[in-house]
């Protein structure tokens, strides 16, 4: 039988103590499906996660404890899942906004760490792998590979900072 949990809005969070589960209704207009996936993935080692789409604009998330637990345990589970859900939704948006900066730093980090492939690496390379990986830039056109860079567009970092300079200052300061 479903019942509300202390401090949790009953329209959004209900518990079934007999089943050892908590049922969350998640507004799909606020939390995209990928955020629900991201949060769910963090929890599948800790509890059983069940997703459903009870109504068109809402996800239904059922978290069932793997070990017997009480109302406080279920409340903690619901609260932590909600926090993770919020973080996942916000992280996705931030990643979208800062994509240029994140990608340029990450690609340089891996390019720097991996270095150019050795002959041994190339020998072991699986050329049938999809999508086609092109470590030597063979598939690139001569023009793309060797064309003169445009002035002021040398690095991702520079682009990122320049973009940031154009960003509304309230965006960085007011949240």
């Amino acid at each position: 039988m479903s019942e509300s949990l202390l401090g949790m809005p009953p329209a959004r969070v209900l518990a079934d103590l007999g089943e050892g589960c908590v049922i969350l209704t998640v507004d799909a207009s606020m939390y995209p499906q990928h955020a629900v996936y991201a949060a769910a993935y963090c929890f599948i080692a800790r509890c059983y996660v069940w997703l459903d789409r009870a109504e068109p604009e809402a996800f239904r998330v059922v978290l069932t404890a793997k070990q017997p637990t009480d109302a406080e345990g279920l409340r903690a589970l619901a609260g932590e899942f909600s926090n993770e859900l919020l973080a996942s939704a916000w992280r996705r948006e931030i990643t979208r906004l800062n994509r240029g900066l994140i990608e340029s730093v990450t690609m340089q980090a891996f390019g720097g760490a991996m270095g150019p492939p050795s002959l041994d690496d190339l020998e072991a390379f699986d050329f049938s792998d999809e999508p086609f990986d092109d470590p030597l830039g063979i598939a690139q056109s001569w023009e793309d590979k060797y064309r003169k860079p445009k002035p002021g567009a040398e690095t991702g970092a520079e682009t990122g900072a320049a973009v940031a300079a154009e960003t509304d200052p309230q965006g960085g300061a007011a949240t």
Binding site: Q108, M114, A157, E158, T159, A165
Partner: peptide, 15 residues
């Protein structure tokens, strides 16, 4: 700004 940012991140050039 870009130069300063690049300087702070120069560790990304090595493994």
């Amino acid at each position: 700004a870009a130069e300063a940012y690049r300087r702070r991140k120069r560790f990304v050039h090595y493994g």
